[in-house]
Computed example of a mutant assay.
Amino acid sequence: MEDVFLAVIGAGQAGLATARAANRRGVRPLVLEAAEEPGGSWSHYYDSLTLFSPARFSSLPGHALPGDPERYPRRDEVVSYLREYASRVDADLRYGWRVEGVEHDGEEFVLTTGDGNRVRAAAVVAATGGFTRPHRPALAGLDGFTGTVLHAAEYRSPASFTGQRVVVVGGGNSGVQIAAELAGVARVSLATRSPVAWANQRPLGRDIHWWFTRSGLDAAPLRRVWEKGPTLVNDDGRYRAAFASGNPDRREMFTLLDGDKVIWADGSTDKADTLVLATGYRPALDYLAPTGALDTAGCPLHRGGISTTVPGLGYVGLEFQRSFSSATLRGVGRDARHVMRRLLSREGRHGSAVAGRARGENRPG
């Protein structure tokens, strides 16, 4: 069994930011990634995905996205950027190592991969984020719907939807972007429980993320405020114009799916060919279940990314981990620094046990 000090699970944006934060504290981590390359979920998003934040506000610590800092990068630019970033961090990066189980005896962790590899570690950071487990909501009649159902995670391009009647469920940025794109080849409705809340992407000539960072809101713990308010969709005017054209249109959430029919809240009925569920994701942390780190819903028990139940365990990349930007390219670095500081020092509730084994690099077995 291999013996290391710090193991990071996941080599997406959260895992890479964590590796760099560990480097800054003199630790060379072992990073285990299930895929065959770094980048996490980015390469699996739809082809036309465009960030809603400029490159200036879409980078990890220590290395900016190249090119015009005011542009809005596309998916493939981010994928290339994360590959380059991985080559810059000082870490033992292992691809094709899917962690399927983690055990903890009170002092150390044992991680087991799908291939039967076992690693013992003093500290673990779960950086698999919240975008690898698509959420499929309990919609009335969904299981009996006879058309095609796919999650936004499975959507790639509009090419195969030509001439269809499509209903996109979910009024966030992705739902709006996908609905507007599909409307070029199909008849599309966006089904939401409340009207779309548009946010001006460039108020007073500055991107909204500039205002967030200048005001301090970007790092503020605003989860309760954010969840009570409407889901905001950043828009420079193009998406509002698309919906104003009538295709796509926005409809109040349907009440029932009956075969291939959608029963709308006003009692009208439509035949639908495809449902696209832009309904978000849930943390993919099942491998931690044996440790007692999760609640009954499978969500991590933590405070600011530090486990409240398991000594030496941290998280990076969780939605609203410490702020509303926690699960973003611009936010994970800040959280990674916080988690590394707490795990690798005596500050945290469980810090002393981990600090006692802090080394300049992981130790070979």
Score class of each variant (00 low, 15 high):
residue 199 A to H: 06
residue 199 A to V: 12
residue 223 R to A: 08
residue 196 V to G: 02
residue 221 P to S: 08
residue 202 R to Q: 03
residue 195 P to G: 03
residue 207 D to R: 07
residue 222 L to I: 13
residue 233 V to K: 02
residue 215 S to Q: 04
residue 184 G to H: 05
residue 221 P to D: 05
residue 181 E to N: 07
residue 239 Y to A: 12
residue 189 S to P: 01
residue 202 R to I: 04
residue 221 P to Q: 09
residue 209 H to K: 09
residue 228 K to E: 15
residue 208 I to E: 12
residue 214 R to Y: 03
residue 218 D to F: 03
residue 227 E to R: 14
residue 211 W to P: 04
residue 235 D to W: 07
residue 209 H to I: 14
residue 225 V to A: 07
residue 207 D to F: 05
residue 211 W to R: 06
residue 204 L to G: 04
residue 207 D to W: 03
residue 192 T to M: 01
residue 214 R to D: 10
residue 238 R to W: 11
residue 235 D to G: 03
residue 236 D to A: 15
residue 182 L to G: 01
residue 181 E to P: 04
residue 197 A to Q: 05
residue 212 F to R: 13
residue 191 A to N: 02
residue 206 R to I: 07
residue 221 P to G: 03
residue 217 L to R: 10
residue 213 T to R: 10
residue 213 T to Y: 12
residue 203 P to L: 06
residue 236 D to T: 14
residue 219 A to N: 11
residue 200 N to E: 14
residue 220 A to T: 06
residue 234 N to A: 15
residue 186 A to P: 00
residue 209 H to D: 09
residue 205 G to V: 01
residue 231 T to R: 14
residue 203 P to I: 10
residue 231 T to A: 11
residue 185 V to N: 01
residue 224 R to S: 15
residue 228 K to D: 15
residue 200 N to F: 05
residue 239 Y to S: 13
residue 192 T to L: 00
residue 196 V to W: 03
residue 224 R to F: 10
residue 194 S to D: 00
residue 182 L to V: 03
residue 224 R to I: 14
residue 198 W to E: 07
residue 199 A to C: 10
residue 240 R to V: 07
residue 196 V to E: 01
residue 207 D to K: 07
residue 200 N to R: 12
residue 206 R to Q: 09
residue 220 A to Y: 12
residue 220 A to F: 08
residue 223 R to N: 07
residue 213 T to G: 00
residue 221 P to C: 08
residue 192 T to E: 00
residue 200 N to V: 15
residue 203 P to H: 10
residue 216 G to S: 06
residue 212 F to L: 12
residue 195 P to F: 01
residue 237 G to E: 08
residue 230 P to V: 14
residue 192 T to P: 00
residue 238 R to Y: 11
residue 222 L to W: 12
residue 189 S to T: 11
residue 197 A to M: 02
residue 199 A to D: 06
residue 181 E to L: 09
residue 192 T to K: 02
residue 182 L to M: 04
residue 184 G to Y: 04
residue 189 S to A: 10
residue 202 R to F: 01
residue 221 P to H: 05
